[in-house]
């Protein structure tokens, strides 16, 4: 199922995944067996007539309509799963992009300036421990609308790992490189683009990778509370209407999309991070 989905999304990504799979074919066999046992166990546990959750066969039967027609468009929140996911991904895209831009900038700032680091780092250490959903009421109160509030939650969730990793990256630029820059009296522009940025890129991508995972975690939870089209609200809505099969299907999709997001960032990193620094 994984391979099937990825083939649809991006060709070179699929090739990469395939080569990855090919390389680890031995590792894949146990995974497949484990998956099969898990499904069988699940089926066995839920095959009793009074079981509270449906088994895998039941799930596929119940949600066949949703699986085969992800592009269905109805009224209001009655949309196909593809559109639900797209709606969630759009929010993540906006929030995450904002977090990346602001996070890298702030990270470089506090990485370069010890004063800024001393001023801001303790505050960041406190703020980053606040759970994403705790921001939601404040965001709703401030923006008076659920859409920007959800985006804000993504933003505030994703920004901390980016800021902190970028700052660490800047602080860890090898002294040798800084010495070269000092002796040559490189201009600020040269220093930024020839030394600071290339040296920090691996750290930035570590932050970006952590952040994308967190964003996806946060969006599902946020949407459950804010409503509207989106995979989070879809799950909540399915639960309220008593369709546990739909909930389970949505969870599978959420997991797969999360995996894909991670793979995409990893792929970009592999293209951008200089060979010598991996």
């Amino acid at each position: 199922m994984t391979a099937e989905l990825s083939r649809r999304s991006n060709n070179s990504l699929a090739t990469m995944l395939f080569t990855m799979l090919g390389r680890s074919i031995k590792r894949l066999v146990p995974t497949a067996i484990a998956l099969f046992i898990l499904l069988a166990l699940w089926q066995a546990l839920c095959s009793a007539p009074d079981a509270s959750l449906p088994g895998p066969v039941q799930v596929v039967q119940d949600t066949w309509e949703l699986i085969v027609d992800p592009f269905y468009q109805g009224e209001g929140t009655d949309q196909g799963l593809f559109w639900q996911l797209i709606a969630s991904l759009k929010r993540v895209a906006v929030g995450y992009t904002l977090a990346a831009i602001v996070g890298i900038a702030v990270g470089i700032l506090i990485g370069v300036s010890l004063l800024m680091f001393q001023a801001l780092d303790p505050i960041f250490q406190v703020l980053r421990t606040v759970p994403p959903l705790a921001w939601l009421p404040i965001a709703l109160a401030a923006f008076k609308d659920s859409q920007p509030a959800a985006i804000f939650v993504i933003f505030i969730t994703a920004i901390w790992p980016i800021v902190i990793n970028t700052a660490v990256g800047v602080q860890n630029i090898p002294q040798d490189y800084n010495n070269v820059a000092k002796v040559l009296q490189l201009s600020r522009m040269d220093y930024f683009f020839k030394v600071l940025l290339p040296a920090t890129v691996p750290y930035i991508f570590t932050g970006l990778k952590i952040a994308i995972g967190l964003s996806w975690l946060a969006i599902v939870a946020a949407e459950m509370l804010t409503g509207g089209v989106g995979i989070g609200f879809f799950i909540w809505d399915a639960y309220n209407s008593g369709s546990n099969s739909e909930v389970i299907l949505a969870i599978v999709y959420v997991g797969i999309v999360g995996l894909l997001l991670n793979a995409i960032i990893g792929y970009i990193a592999s293209r951008v991070v200089p060979e010598e620094q991996k």
Partner: peptide, 20 residues
Amino acid sequence: TEPGPDRMVVFQNYSLLPWL
């Protein structure tokens, strides 16, 4: 008073920028 290219250093560990 400060480093400058009139006193160029050949560092012990080369200090070449690996991405160039």
